[in-house]
């Protein structure tokens, strides 16, 4: 465990806490894509199938459980909680996310480290995580405004991605056996998607204008 990875995990956790706080404090999920949140829940459920078969550390197991529970809790709130449900921007959140799930699964069947149930689902979760933010970006683009907490949520998610890349660079140079090319390439794609968002988010903040993402 290096400092970059720990900081990456912490910012990832903070992003989820910020989102839960926003939903809990404002009883509103306006500006949040349910589809992205559903994809994240699927990502964690598919990736952490090893929770009962491989023990890494207490830290690792606890974080896995926290990520699964918090992502499922967010989806549950947005779907079932009466007040929160009402604030959901359903007509703006129209990205067909099932296509992403299907495409990532087919890709995982083709590109994986080993053709086993667990390995295919692991690769699937990595690919799906890389593109899971797309419905959220589409929603932000359509609504054209980002409230503070939603902005911070996306900011912390982006920080997590950037720190994980530093972690991989660090591990590449310090660990003889480190080769996670599936995770690294997918991570770069994911970070590029965020970089695009950050650029327009920065512009809108600088000009004090509404966030305007190009199609």
């Amino acid at each position: 465990m290096n400092a970059f990875r720990l900081a990456g995990d912490i910012t990832h956790l903070i992003s989820i806490l910020v989102l839960l706080l926003k939903i809990y404090a404002t009883k509103s999920c306006s500006g949040i894509s349910l589809k992205t949140q559903e994809l994240y829940a699927v990502v964690f459920l598919a990736r952490y199938l090893d929770l009962f078969t491989d023990f890494i550390s207490v830290y690792n197991s606890v974080m896995k459980v926290v990520f699964i529970l918090s992502s499922v809790a967010i989806v549950w709130c947005m779907r079932r909680h009466r007040a929160v449900k009402r604030s959901y921007d359903k007509e703006l959140d129209t990205f067909r996310h099932y296509y992403l799930v299907g495409a990532c699964f087919v890709f995982a069947l083709l590109v994986h480290e080993k053709f086993t149930f667990q390995e295919v689902f692991w690769a699937f979760s990595i690919y799906l995580e890389a593109v899971a933010i797309i419905p959220q970006l589409v929603l932000l683009q359509r609504s054209g405004n980002v409230d503070n907490l939603t902005g911070q949520y996306v900011f912390f998610l982006g920080a997590y991605r950037a720190l994980y890349i530093l972690n991989w660079i660090y591990r590449y140079f310090t660990e003889a056996k480190f080769s996670r090319w599936i995770a690294c390439i997918s991570g770069l794609v994911q970070t590029a998607l965020y970089a695009d968002f950050f650029y327009y988010y920065f512009l809108s903040w600088k000009n004090n204008a509404k966030l305007n993402l190009p199609a």
Binding site: I56, M63, E113, Y164, K177
Partner: peptide, 10 residues
């Protein structure tokens, strides 16, 4: 065949 390293990242 090389044993793949354990998946220790989250």
């Amino acid at each position: 065949e090389l044993e793949p390293p354990p998946k220790d990242e989250l």
